[in-house]
Design a protein around this nucleic acid. Structure first.
Lengths: 158, 158
DNA sequence: GTAAGATCTCAAGCGCACTTGAAGTCAAGG
DNA sequence: CCTTGACTTCAAGTGCGCTTGAGATCTTAC
């Protein structure tokens, strides 16, 4: 037993799981990948410091957004886990992370725009649509592998 | 090489791959899943209508955004592939799709906000941060599904 | 006609992100 | 002390989204 609000209060893996919604097996997996860390009891059981809640949450949210765990590792790899991270530790990491998120968001925004401006108006299905005429755009840019966005953007160019 | 502006021009799987950046094997896989469709030559080879370029691109972009292919199927399942889809077909589908994208984008925006307002200032490591009074900020944004933030907020209780 | 290269199907394999199961250990209550 | 439930490791299995390989066929250019 210990006082519930001590600074050094540690959580079991079960408690961490309950509080973050992440399965214990997933927490072990994240630890194997070096994304989170724990201390061990004399009996070899994991105990988590409070600040690990955040790291777990970040990993969990990233995963739900479809961002590979390796990217999370890259972004937060410099943030120490053995001690409470400093302000600067978090700032550096958060700047990297924000760039990742921004790219994702922009990609989604482009898609939304595409839907509104083109699919939404029926362009995708109507050969006659003036916005479409991709032949001009394609011929102008020449052959070669086109990126996904390029293909979607083709429609706007014409 | 050939007249590029025929209405009935069909692409081989290789050409579709080059133009969308999607591997032929992936195109076959998408077809197995019913996400895209092709017609066959007398010799059983796939040929794609131009409008499939769009479908392929949508699938491909969605995948890159981490959106499950099943969701893409759900969103665009009603859009016919054997014939040119009608305006209404696309509109219905694009409304569903936009909702999916919007949810994703909002989730990312919330995370970005979290990073800017909290991690960026060091809150994630400092319990005392004033910005982290979640009740004000989050109550203001209204109800709705906020699982992601709920998790991030938990630390702030103590 | 023939050769080269593109495409076909089917089966198996891969990487990621886990989950499940087996067999054993730890922690807390009575 | 003893039980119960949470925890441990390790190996194998799962689902997704493909890729790879084998072996055959199609298409095209000469």
């Amino acid at each position: 037993m210990n006082a519930a609000h001590e600074p050094e209060e540690l959580m079991t893996i079960g408690e961490m799981g309950r509080r973050t919604g992440v399965a214990a097996s997933a927490l072990r997996y994240y630890e194997d990948l070096g994304l989170i860390a724990s201390v061990r009891t004399a009996g070899n059981q994991r105990r988590y410091a409070r600040h690990m809640l955040r790291r777990v949450s970040l990993v969990s949210v990233a995963k739900r957004l479809g961002i590979p765990l390796a990217d999370v590792g890259d972004a937060f790899g410099d943030v120490p886990m053995d001690r409470t991270p400093s302000h600067d530790d978090w700032q550096r990491a958060s700047r990297r992370w924000r760039r990742t998120l921004e790219e994702r968001r922009r990609a989604i925004e482009r898609l939304e725009h595409e839907l509104t401006g083109c699919i939404g108006c029926g362009c995708l299905s109507l050969k006659a649509c003036a916005l479409l005429n991709p032949d001009d755009a394609l011929a102008a840019t020449g052959a070669g592998p086109r990126r996904l966005e390029d293909v979607l953007e083709e429609d706007d160019e014409g």
